[in-house]
Design a protein around this nucleic acid. Structure first.
Lengths: 154, 154
DNA sequence: ATATATTGTGGGTAATTGTGGGTAAACAAT
DNA sequence: ATTGTTTACCCACAATTACCCACAATATAT
């Protein structure tokens, strides 16, 4: 069976070792397209989590940023905040990537991590933080989803 | 691992020694295309920081400046201020470049420096100055990014 | 059920990287 | 020329990182 390339779904639980390494689920490694050369780009998520992009997906973002003129101050701060925390990681022989202390701190990660497929990217969460955000979303007025109902048909 | 040439992302912390030398992150050195002959062009940034361009990228800027008519006074002063503080630097065996006291002063750099990849160029910041700009951005109305949101999809 | 392969977790070692300083050549001023 | 100053180039070492191997846990096949 052929799985969509560079597409990720499902939730997995892993441990982060003392060197800051986490395993990337074998399933995700296999669905990563070969032209990525086994590399992801990891960065701060807009939620308290880590975002993981396939290299080629991230390069499209970079190419778009290259077209923004640095004469505009808004452009400069946007570029800076978008790429500042981003770094390239290749997974080792065992299928792990290394997370910098900077990113670990941002996501409040300690010993355990949930890895969640988000279709075009992957998220790494501290379990308790994920529960918090879930709770907030449940309490949220569901009418906020209405705008999306026009675009996504389940 | 194939990384985009002349493309820089991530944030790194380094110290400036008594001779005004700073390390260029190994990652950046490696992504600098060979035709640059290990040389950058450093100049004043439009923010209080130092801008570092790969040589070939800077040459494209110079070519664009050549196309601006000197009949316009605005053009003349723009050209003058763009090129005025620019100088060529090659990194030494240890991967460092030397910053002139002129540039150090402009960026208010003292002992520590943050080096930030800005996709097509590199910025060198005094940590406290960067924090200031960050604070301003947080206070800024996020709607200012709206025009960009149409062009850049994260 | 047993054997076999794959996946997840921990650690050790060697190479690379970052930081300090030293020495000799180039330059400037007397 | 002589002296002082700056610049370029070289070496040393500590800290970090990349790379390798071992093994347990899980899954797959026979």
């Amino acid at each position: 069976m052929t799985i969509n390339q560079d597409t990720f779904t499902g939730e997995f639980s892993y441990t982060i070792d003392t060197k800051g390494r986490v395993n990337i689920p074998a399933k995700f490694r296999q669905s990563l397209a070969p032209e990525n050369d086994q590399t992801f780009v990891i960065t701060r998520g807009m939620d308290p989590c880590i975002w993981v992009y396939p290299l080629t997906a991230w390069q499209i973002i970079e190419d778009d940023l290259k077209d923004l003129s640095a004469i505009s101050g808004i452009n400069r701060s946007f570029i800076r905040n978008t790429v500042r925390y981003a770094s390239t990681v290749t997974f080792d022989k065992q299928g792990r990537i290394i997370l910098s202390s900077n990113l670990l701190k941002h996501a409040k990660l300690k010993k355990n991590a949930f890895i969640i497929g988000m279709v075009n990217k992957i998220e790494i969460w501290e379990p308790s933080e994920l529960a918090k955000v879930d709770k907030q979303n449940l309490e949220m007025d569901s009418s906020k989803y209405d705008a999306l109902a026009d675009r996504i048909i389940l």
